[in-house]
Amino acid sequence: MKAFRFLRPRTLAEASEALRREPGAVPKAGGVDLLDRWKERVEEPEVVVGLCDVTDGAALRLEEDGALVLGALATLADLAGSDLVRRFLPALARAADQAASPQIRHRATLGGNLAQATRCGYWRLRSFPCLLRGASRCPVREPGGVQETAGIFANDPCASAHPSSVAPVLGALGAEILVGGGPEGGRGLAFEALWRAPEPGRSDVLALEPGELIRAVRIPPSAHPVRVGHAEVRQRAAFDWPLVTAAVGLTLDADRIREARVWLGSVAPTPHRARAAEAALTGRRLAEVRATFDGRAAAEGATPLPGTAYKAGLVAVAARRALADALERS
């Protein structure tokens, strides 16, 4: 690992100030993935803004209006173990509890999970060409490219996949992202506005202004009952990356679905909203979707590569299981 300067702000505001003052500085919370990347020399920051001393970023709280605000520096173990999260957002607690390993969950943060980079093996090895690191083409898309874990939506020109299994659940909950510290001060972002589409020569995945940090995730209160389910398909039950994650959020009017949110993970360069599946669920009665929803609408618009054709089928399976989870559990 290459040496760096290490700054240690005490507050999120100080951290933002440091990021603005030092172009190219990288914020580090848990940093479990950052350290891998620095050791492999995929990235070599000159300046690291360590968030280890920041005391105002990890709280999990219920607001007076019923909104839940989850500090971005809360760890996945904090989320999984929080009485508040387990009571009001059980699908989120389960998703956080299934990610990675116990040791990693004690370090990995909510903000870092949303900000994490692709698992693409080409991007992660400096000796391979990669569009995001300046090559003219994405080697995953070439004949002979290793494609099994690649994205199947929005996968041209870059077939990377965003691996967060927490993000789809937050999307299904209708979460918004609170960012702060940029030129405009604090602001709220619609969930999907946190990420940007891949661009040649740019490895960062977040649509943040210089100096901005993810401060918190806000789950707005709902006037109607909400049910949220989550399902993940992966090769190993523990300590594995998902092949596909699906989450379904239903806002109910008695037994009718007033609004549906369906989000997928590990299938596109950013968390992916499955709008056709939402349309297939919205306005229907619960008994009807329980009997007829086959999940295939969630794969609408997919453009799989030869090596990822199987993933469209997995998306349907995961969406079906996530719906069943929503109907059974919450």
Partner: peptide, 19 residues
Amino acid sequence: CTVLLDGEPVLSCLVLGLE
């Protein structure tokens, strides 16, 4: 490389000494 940091298991290869 697991150690307990403030009682919680963490991977010492993924924690900076400074932290």
